[in-house]
């Protein structure tokens, strides 16, 4: 099994890595230190590993790293930081949408994917958009509120990302 050097643009930064083909994007992201991308099942069932690949929400556990060669990846830690949180992240923190937090990075990426194409979603659209992201703690209600709140804040203020 040959290794190959691939180029990934992760959170705005170019990275080059050499790896064999049987490595998933989830694995390479975590190995590169993007541990905000979580592993909850490694088979598409939970959404904890969700990232944006060229702007589209994907489960990174179901993408081979080579398939992401030359493409752009955005993870929750690329969206904002403690000092400069993205409005979506602020909204999650403010509405009680975060309990154990393990689903949160994936949820936030699903929210970003939704709001990028639908800045003013209905409750039903929000629920549908996060339906592949399991949360065992919150019962989703406060997450749904957070997404609506994030939409309001972005509409009111200017999306930093």
């Amino acid at each position: 099994m040959d290794e190959r050097t691939i180029r990934l643009k992760i959170n705005g930064r170019e990275r080059e890595v050499s790896l064999p083909p049987n490595v998933t994007l989830l694995r390479v992201l975590r190995d590169l230190g993007y541990v905000d991308v979580k592993n909850g099942c490694e088979k598409g069932d939970c959404g904890a590993c969700a990232v944006l690949l060229d702007g589209k929400l994907v489960n990174s556990c179901l993408v081979l790293a080579w398939q992401a060669d030359g493409r752009e990846i955005l993870t929750a830690s690329g969206l904002g930081s403690i000092e400069h949180p993205h409005p979506i992240q602020e909204a999650f923190a403010d509405t009680g949408a975060v309990q154990c937090g393990y689903c949160t990075p994936g949820m936030i990426m699903a929210t970003k994917a939704l709001l990028d194409v639908n800045p003013d979603p209905s409750e039903e659209e929000i629920r549908e958009a996060i339906s592949g992201n399991l949360c065992r703690c919150t019962g989703y209600a406060q997450i749904v509120e957070a997404v609506a709140e994030a939409a309001r804040r972005i509409a009111g203020g200017g999306d930093s990302g």
């Binding site: 598409g44 959404g47 969700a50 589209k56 929400l57 994907v58 489960n59 179901l62 993408v63 699903a110 994917a113 549908e128 958009a129 339906s131 592949g132 992201n133």
Partner: peptide, 9 residues
């Protein structure tokens, strides 16, 4: 079909 993230792939 499935979920949004799976549908994208």
């Amino acid at each position: 079909f499935a979920s949004p993230s799976v549908r994208n792939r």
